[in-house]
């Protein structure tokens, strides 16, 4: 091996597939945030005269079975679950990162207890936990945030713990410690650069999981309540009218798919 072979250029921050993912997410975000500014309207306003009517100037995607603008309901729905998902991912990420490094650095009983808790949560289907939390916490959005955070932190915890343990056992960290560097330096220089790329992947996957969970529970009528515009709820409401108003059903389906595909592509390969 010559030296030149080894000195490959540093990895670009985003691969081609990840860039496609970012573009998809940006498109969905633009639809949701800018759309209602260009065509103004109310996601809740009913007009039974226009039930299941096709697109017009006030409603670019037509009307649902209650005569509400699908475009404005979709734009609102595309804000609701991503915001809940992001809040949950941030909470879970912060908790997982803190507990994971703590567990790896301290070891002993703290480590054993946290691993035991994480293993038990891992054995439970996420949707089950979310449903149980929803039944306890007043307010559906708050319940989703709490339930999703409870489900998602485990993955962050496991990743952080594994990577930190491996890094702490490496000769590089041993050398730094022998030279006299402290815990803050070890975290900043050795641990964080190992964890950071994984955190992005886990966060993108976590957001996708969260959005899927909110939509899935909406679809089976145990998530967000009508008349809140929510992706899964919109789909199940419009499913019976598929033959009369295919566009009204396709719009949330395609938007959800684009958003989730974007997040999956952004997450990239799980290999580390």
């Amino acid at each position: 091996m010559s030296v030149l072979d080894l000195s490959a250029a540093p990895q670009p921050p985003l691969s081609a597939t990840r860039r496609v993912g970012v573009v998809l997410i940006a498109l969905v975000a633009a639809l949701s945030l800018l759309g209602p500014l260009i065509v103004q309207g109310d996601p809740y306003a009913q007009s039974l005269m226009k039930a299941l009517a096709g697109p017009d100037a006030a409603a670019p995607l037509g009307y649902d079975h209650l005569g509400r603008s699908v475009f404005h309901r979709l734009a609102y729905a595309l804000r609701l679950s991503p915001v809940i998902a992001l809040a949950a991912v941030m909470t879970a990420g912060a908790a997982g990162l803190a507990l994971g490094t703590l567990s790896a650095a301290k070891g002993g009983w703290i480590d054993r207890c946290l691993v035991m808790l994480a293993d038990a949560l891992l054995a439970l289907p996420g949707l089950l936990l979310i449903l149980m939390v929803l039944a306890m916490v007043p307010g559906t959005a708050l319940g989703f945030w709490a339930g999703l955070s409870l489900v998602l932190w485990v993955e962050f915890f496991r990743l952080t713990r594994a990577a930190t343990r491996e890094t702490l056992a490496s000769p590089a960290v041993q050398a730094s410690r022998l030279l006299g560097f402290g815990a803050a330096y070890v975290f900043r220089v050795h641990i964080w650069p190992e964890i950071a790329p994984m955190m992005l992947t886990a966060a993108a996957f976590g957001t996708a999981t969260a959005i899927m969970a909110i939509a899935a529970l909406g679809f089976v009528h145990v998530g967000m309540r009508a008349p809140t515009p929510e992706l899964g709820l919109m789909m199940v409401e419009l499913l019976p009218y598929w033959r009369e108003a295919p566009l009204a059903l396709l719009a949330p389906v395609l938007a959800t798919f684009a958003l989730l595909l974007g997040l999956t592509l952004l997450a990239g390969s799980r290999k580390t």
Binding site: S170, P171, A172, A175, L178, L179, G180, V189, H190, P193
Partner: peptide, 18 residues
């Protein structure tokens, strides 16, 4: 206390990689 140092078999693993 830090006058006691070590050289490693695989020096690549002894430096922060990034």
């Amino acid at each position: 206390p830090f006058a006691f140092q070590k050289l490693y078999q695989d020096p690549v693993a002894a430096f922060p990689p990034r």
